[in-house]
Design a protein around this nucleic acid. Sequence first.
RNA 1: GUCCCCAUCGUCUAGCCCGGUCCAGGACACCGGCCUUUCACGCCGGCGACAGGGGUUCGAAUCCCCUUGGGGACGCCA
Length: 473
Amino acid sequence: MDTIITRFPPSPTGTLHIGGARTALFNWLYAKKTNGKFILRIEDTDTARSTKESVDAILESLKWLGIDWDEGPYFQTERYDIYNEYIEKLVESGAAYYCSCTPDEVNVMREEAKARGLKPMYNGKCRQKNLKKSDNTVVRLKTPDSGVTIVKDIVKGDTAFQNSEMDDFIIQRSDGSAMYNLAVVIDDITMGINTIIRGDDHLINTPKQMLIYKALGADLPVFGHVPMVLGSDKSRLSKRHGAMSVGEYEKMGFLPDAMINYLVRLGWSHGDQEFFEKNDLIEKFDLEHLGRSASMFDTDKLVSLNSKHIQNKSPEELADPLLFHLKNIGINARNDAFTQGVIETLQPRSKTLVDMAQGAVFYYQDTVQFDEKAAKKFLKPDILPVLQKSVDYIEGLENYTQEELETVFKQIMDETDLKFGKIAQPLRVAITGTTVSPGIFEMLLALGKEKTILRIKRAIHFISESGLFQDNA
RNA sequence: GUCCCCAUCGUCUAGCCCGGUCCAGGACACCGGCCUUUCACGCCGGCGACAGGGGUUCGAAUCCCCUUGGGGACGCCA
């Protein structure tokens, strides 16, 4: 079997959005799975809307997702000579011709066609004129008047298009630049692309492109048109549905692997399996199980998958991504043993890295801020003996381990005749300032002996002070 | 207007190609419960769908037709 060569051809008119990322992913996965090649090509022929910033943003998002490419990025604007070469060939062979009709004239033709209950179309006026190239001529492809063009699509099945429904579309503008449908086909042919997975909004372009392949005598690639990703109201995904670019999801604290997992499951399935690591996907991905119907983007499911991926990673893997989000909230931490210990305590209770960063704040503060309600309820004089004993016993520990800590608190429970629940909450407030945190022991362990003692002492001080204040009042 | 695509729980989907094993399975969300030092995790249970109508057949979520609904495309955009 020939090497599978796929591609992803974004137009740099914005950031990489969800839908684009998914198509890129499908192509990338298929190439990886088959040991094929994945080519990146920038379709920037719309010079009015294309920007360098967009190119950079798209490349960056792709890298973040871990989608790498074997060739490229190629830029269509650097390939005009190649396109023109082929356009000339097409004109010479009679498959295409020059047309001097103005846009206004063509609009009239479209109106006429519509009036007759047809699709708005150019009527082929210049077809037989045998015009030469001049300043305001475009090149049009001569499309058949009858017959059908059948798109063999691996996800949609066979779809027949009446050739009479297609007009002689423009392949080269009057300024000499190539149009989308032509540039795509020439690129795909010259780059050896043999598998094209793209959004089904392109299905309608496919018969046109097939005509170009045919006129050039080139082999057809395998087509697969995947359904689009819709917003929560089933309309095309757009800004009003919330975040739609990959970069925004990074900022919201999602892991690239979770993103990939979610995206691939949106329109592809492997039985009942929901959770996939990247390698797993490469092994299991196939074209046979791509779905045929459009799907809605659901953030809840992404969140759920994200928390599973967070749980499934090692603290070490999570550290750098977390550091990024810690920095965003003003905490400069390092990827060290302390941070990894912190992460371990936070993994099961963080849905996103933003959650995790927020949950980690207390670990990095020199003096924790006591939540008013929490302090009022739990940091009261009657707990003083417990806190004092905690300090004394922990200070006396030879080994600061979970086992030893458990012994310490068992002893305190015995001596004070209090249940653990009565001890844990005040302690939690002393350590974190709030009533919600990781489990006591794992937290104390992650914090370290020194800081633990310091914080309990500070709580003792806090209680004594406020007690004094109350007495005076 | 014309053409094309699509149609299973609220959502993502399995099953459909090769009809019976499906009074339709899993996941997310939601609701209960268990676990428990808080919050979570985890576990158990509940709610909840074959768009409608006709065929074909002993038998249809699965095959055919129509209707309805949704999406997309009709550019000297990509």
